[in-house]
Structures are given as structure tokens and as C-alpha cells.
Amino acid sequence: MNVQTRAIEVTRYSPERDKEPYLQRYDVPFDESTSILDALNYIKEHIDATLSYRWSCRMAICGSCGVMVNGIPKLGCKDFLRLYDHTPETPIRIEPLAHFSVERDLIVNMDEFLTHLEAVKPYIIGDNVDTASLPAEASLQSPAQLSRYQQFANCINCGLCYAACPQFGLNPEFVGPGAIALAHRYNLDSRDHGKTERMPLLNSKNGVWSCTFVGFCSDVCPKGVDPAAAVNQGKVDSAKSMLIQLFKGSQLQGEHQ
């Protein structure tokens, strides 16, 4: 059988050994079903065991395999070699996610995103009620209530939107698309009472207001979350919140307080 191969360039970097990252070329056999992650796994198993990268689920759920493929943020397991040009002279270039610090080869420091995520309290904040004592119906939602936030709940924390966001690239203090989308998701949840706690950060200059509506975050999101919509709906919320604070001297109250 005639096996086709594809040329791939991968960024290599070991902080103890290399002054700066460099590209290394590999030739990888591929067919219709070979993903970028499969290609990396092939390299690690058959060519160069020292290559480092992250992955786990290989089905676009864990969000750990994000890399730049020819300059565009992609999930390695959801992007395929067949989608790229077939000449050996033009290798597919695989690099670590942009705008993050690189720890080794394709592995970046995800804390730079996760600290922002933690700061927006991406979980349901109750009303100081012991939820265990409530009847089960207390947390039921109507389809309409669910549909308000469902799209934003699909985020898998992969960080592709941060690699796509030029404002995050210019200012790493920017809370960023993914975290703001999740803040918005909980602010829209009928069971949540935490909006007052989330708004001060979203209202700040590093919150929703650092966004200039480039929109590339939504283009690259592998789960259709549309973080750009969340951020810009967040601007309306934030403007309301600040007006209320100005006139009433208090923060915007959550929808259900």
C-alpha cells in the first residue's frame, strides 16, 4: 500500500537547553482520519519521544490539546491533516498557543487563563441557603431559563479564544473572552445569586471594557460558545451596573435578589 506522508514543523523548546524556541521538521504518514493530535502522537511514539504536548480525551471535551496550526488556534484532536495543503514543500506548522508563556515545546502556562477564570467565580453562588434542605423542585429550570445561558455553558476552558484575542496579547491582565463568557453564563442562570460579586471585576478596565470587539475569539471557539457576544452583552450589563451605582450608590443587584 502506498502510504502518504505529510511534512510537519513543530516548535521545540526546552528551557534548560535552548536559548529560544526553534522549529523541527517531521514526516508523518496520514490518511483521511489523521488528526493533528494523531500526528503528534505518531511523532512521540515513532520518531522523537522527547516531544512534549498536552492531551487527554481526544474528542474535543477536555480542552487540553490547544495548539496553533498554521497560525490559527485549534484543538489538535478536532483538526485534521487532510484539511491542509498536500505538498511536502509546505509543512504544516504546529506551535504553542499564542499569548501564553511557553513551558516546554507545545506546553504553555495555562494559569495565565485559569487565574482569570477563578477570579470571575464560575460557579453557582447560592443565597446562603443550605441547598440540601431544599426540595428538588427548587432548582428546576424552565427550557426558557436554560436557553438564556446554555450556549455559554459549553465552554471547555481550552484557551483557544485567549490565543486568538489581540487584546489579551497586548494586556495579559485582561480577564479575557473565555472567563467573561463563563461569568456571563452564571450571571444569566436563574439559580445564581452571585452577580453582585462578579460585576466589580467585569466593570473594571481589565474586565469587559478591554474588548474592542475583534470577534476572532468566537471564530476559533471549538464549541460554538460565541464569547464575543457574551463580552458585548456584558458591556451593556456593566454600563447599567455602573449607572445604577452612580445614582443609587449600590452595585447592580442580581436578577433574582
Binding site: 458591556k235 451605582q245 443609587k248 450608590g249 449600590s250
Partner: peptide, 16 residues
């Protein structure tokens, strides 16, 4: 809480 705490002009510019 002071009613001016954390406020800035960005929402005004953005509305315009």
C-alpha cells in the same frame, strides 16, 4: 461603598 468607586469613563465613550 462610595458611589464613585471603580467607575471610569469607558462606558460613556462606548455608549457614544
Amino acid at each position: 461603598m462610595s458611589r464613585l468607586r471603580g467607575l471610569h469613563f469607558e462606558p460613556l465613550w462606548w455608549s457614544l
